[in-house]
Amino acid sequence: MKMDKPGLFSRLKAGLSRTAGNFNAGLTSVFTKRRLDAAALEELEDLLIAADLGPAVAARVSGKLAAERFDKEISEHEIKAALAEVMTEILEPVARPLAIDSTNRPHVILVVGVNGTGKTTTIGKIAHNLRAEGKSVVMAAADTFRAAAIEQLEVWGQRSAATVVRRDVGADPAAVAYEGLQQAQALNADVLLVDTAGRLQNKAGLMDELAKVVRVLGKLDAKAPHDCLLVLDATTGQNALRQVEVFADVCNVTGLAMTKLDGTARGGVLVAVAERFTLPVHYIGIGEGIDDLQPFAATPFARAVAGLDG
């Protein structure tokens, strides 16, 4: 990842500032110089819930503030700092980049998630990033269900000059994944990205289909898929926890990406997810552009959400 690229941080902040702005509006109105009493704490808890952090994390944060500052005058800045600190604490251990192991020929990344979270777009952006690092990339269009999903991936293939392995609509996704791995092996590619159809985690049949993809990949390379990336939508509420739980169970999710953080969605559920599952968070998506996928970093994320500078 090109961490030193100018403007990266400002882009991240631009994406998140609306999140923070919205959050702050509430926070400021409640906490401009005020005694931290029970009512104030409850309001803080509500504000955290409104940021999609979830009741558990909300209670923990306000509990921490209560322990330290109860009945004291507390300023807006202190609230933000404490908030950012607690969130950073939770997020720091999970902020880990997606590491490509070059001894894997190829390194297989299976990309999964419910419908419409942005799997194909995320794959396109990852491919673009990997290509920019000079890695060779093969993509397998294993979403054989949604109309034009294959064509969509092919467009991303052209944009990032990556090979796309495809079959017809309705083909067995496991077969496409298998063929993708065969081709990637033949080409001695660095990375294989497997795109899968969106599926709701409560559809047993579709989850079995996913388990089959994993099984079949394992036939060509016992360790494949080396990574399984679950793509979460920032606008999703507490159901994201269910998504992580079930997908992790079915296909051994190794990391997360959260998309659509350029809206007003707070993405706070990521904090709840991090606290409960301790799965690495690799990427955040902050726009539709090919460069709008960023490595996830705890401090800026937490501070931006809390509305603090830099």
Partner: peptide, 12 residues
Amino acid sequence: ADSLTGQDAVNV
């Protein structure tokens, strides 16, 4: 709109 949407539903 996605029925799984969280608190952001009101803003949207």
